[in-house]
Write a protein that binds this DNA or RNA. Sequence first.
DNA 1: TTTAAAGGTAAAGCACGCTTTACAAAGGAG
DNA 2: CTCCTTTGTAAAGCGTGCTTTACCTTTAAA
Lengths: 65, 65
Amino acid sequence: MNNSLKDLRAERGWSQAHLAELLDVSRQTVISIENGKYDPSLPLAFRIARVFGQPIEAIFQEDEA
Amino acid sequence: MNNSLKDLRAERGWSQAHLAELLDVSRQTVISIENGKYDPSLPLAFRIARVFGQPIEAIFQEDEA
DNA sequence: TTTAAAGGTAAAGCACGCTTTACAAAGGAG
DNA sequence: CTCCTTTGTAAAGCGTGCTTTACCTTTAAA
């Protein structure tokens, strides 16, 4: 799974720490998701979508075959 | 997280075993998600959405406050 | 030059997502 | 009644999602 978290966050001028607060997760979690270490849980994906005002499918993309 | 998996599956007349095959997961996984034992991973949520031809947000709903 | 903010890595620990195997109960078909 | 399908539970095992703490590097401001 790819995601555009880093871009969306940059567009808004938010730090990783600030985004982590908005999402109610640790800064480590934001770093790990942005850098593709793992995918968020579904509930967290919903919070991310809400924070950025976009559908989940607009932020996360399945790896192409 | 609530989901309408059971209804969507019933509408199509599929067994849990058949849906599990379509999603490439075990039958146990389908049962557990339908019965709310846990939420699917994000990649699996994408496959579920694709199988039913609906956006993730149409199938899964965050618990209301 | 010192300080602070921002991004990153590492490692240990816990809970959850998913697997496999096995067993059980209910309903319909023969 | 017997057989098969469907749904469900239980339990053990593995990898991942997320946490906390600690430390490092780069950049910019005082």
